[in-house]
Amino acid sequence: MPPEEPLTGSAGPADTPAYERVEPYELVVNGTRMTVEDAWLGESLLFVLRERLGLPGAKNACEQGECGSCSVLLDDVVVCACLVLGVDAVGSRVETVEGLTASGEVADIQAALVEAGGVQCGFCTPGFVVALHDLLRRAPSADDMTVREALSGNLCRCTGYGRILEAVRAVQWQRGAGVSTGEGPGDGA
């Protein structure tokens, strides 16, 4: 397990940067107004979330829109946070895996991923949670090919996708049968 402290925090880098900064701006992330100060214009929404707002759930695997590990909802549409300029998210609603977790709306997806063995190193996992949430609310009973196409922008290097697709079927079955998962899987960490 990685250490709990002193390695987490929500403030960002301080001191004088060697580049042009933008005026402070405000983002609405997971329903909360957050101010971004001293940011460089070129900072992606992904960087702002991870390094300035203390929300590292969206991951930084490729930073070029080719892996889906930074998937977030921007005004209810799933996008790669690495391809959104932080300042261009002003006035939009940003929802991250942390927000979806807090609201409980992805609890069954999360539980199914763990139960089915769809999590190994876990770096792609938050992106899959967001993309799966987006898919299953739009197409609850999507067939296998539809699921695969919807997830084709989320790379996983560990699982070969088999257990992740298994988890999707499990969620569909549970939701279709109206089965509530109740509580999430045990967290022995």
Partner: peptide, 19 residues
Amino acid sequence: PDGAQKTRGEFAFSSDLWM
């Protein structure tokens, strides 16, 4: 044991560290 944390984005990867 780390699965649930990983699905929530709470598991601290080496790129998530901050001081």
